[in-house]
Computed example of a mutant assay.
Amino acid sequence: MENIKTSIVNYLKDNSFMDKNTELGDADSLTQNGIIDSIGLLELLDHISEKYSIEIPEDMLIPENLDSLQGLTNMITNLTK
Results as ranks from 00 to 15, higher is better:
Pro57Met: 05
Gly34Thr: 09
Asp59Cys: 01
Tyr11Gln: 00
Glu55Met: 09
Ile62Glu: 14
Asp59Tyr: 13
Ser29Asp: 09
Asn78Ala: 13
Ile36Thr: 05
Asp28Tyr: 07
Asp14Ala: 14
Thr77Asp: 15
Asn15Met: 02
Asn33His: 14
Tyr52Gly: 01
Ile4Arg: 11
Ser68Arg: 07
Asn21Tyr: 11
Leu42Met: 14
Ile39Asn: 01
Glu2Asp: 14
Pro63Thr: 09
Ser49Phe: 00
Thr6Lys: 14
Lys5Phe: 10
Asp59Ser: 10
Gly40Lys: 07
Ile76Glu: 03
Ser38Thr: 13
Leu45Arg: 05
Phe17Asn: 15
Ile56Tyr: 06
Lys51Arg: 13
Glu50Gln: 14
Ile8Arg: 01
Pro57Lys: 12
Ser16Gln: 10
Ser53Trp: 00
Gln70Trp: 00
Ile56Leu: 01
Ile54Gln: 02
Leu30Asp: 14
Ile56Trp: 03
Ile4Gly: 10
Glu50Gly: 08
Ile35Trp: 11
Met75Thr: 07
Leu44Glu: 09
Leu42Arg: 05
Phe17Arg: 13
Asn33Leu: 11
Gly34Asn: 08
Leu44Phe: 04
Leu24Ser: 07
Pro57Val: 09
Ser29Asn: 10
Thr22Ala: 14
Gln70Gly: 01
Thr73Val: 02
Ser16Lys: 10
Glu23Asn: 13
Asn74Pro: 00
Val9Gly: 02
Asp19Tyr: 05
Ile62Leu: 14
Asn3Tyr: 12
Met60Pro: 00
Thr22Tyr: 13
Glu2Gln: 12
His47Cys: 00
Ile36Gln: 04
Ile54Gly: 03
Asp14His: 04
Ser7Thr: 13
Gly40Tyr: 07
Asp26His: 08
Thr31His: 11
Tyr11Arg: 00
Asn78Trp: 00
Val9Ser: 06
Ile8Ser: 02
Tyr52Asn: 03
Ser53Arg: 09
Thr77Gly: 11
Asn33Gly: 13
Gln32Asp: 15
Leu24Asp: 06
Ile39His: 01
Pro57Glu: 12
His47Trp: 14
Phe17Asp: 13
Asp67Pro: 02
Val9Trp: 06
Ser16Trp: 11
Ile62Met: 12
Ser29His: 08
Asn65Thr: 06
Thr6Asp: 14
Asn78Cys: 00
Leu42Ala: 13
Glu58Pro: 03
Leu61Trp: 08
Pro63Gln: 06
Leu24Pro: 04
Ile8Met: 03
Asp37Ile: 08
Pro63Lys: 05
Thr80Arg: 02
Ile35Gly: 12
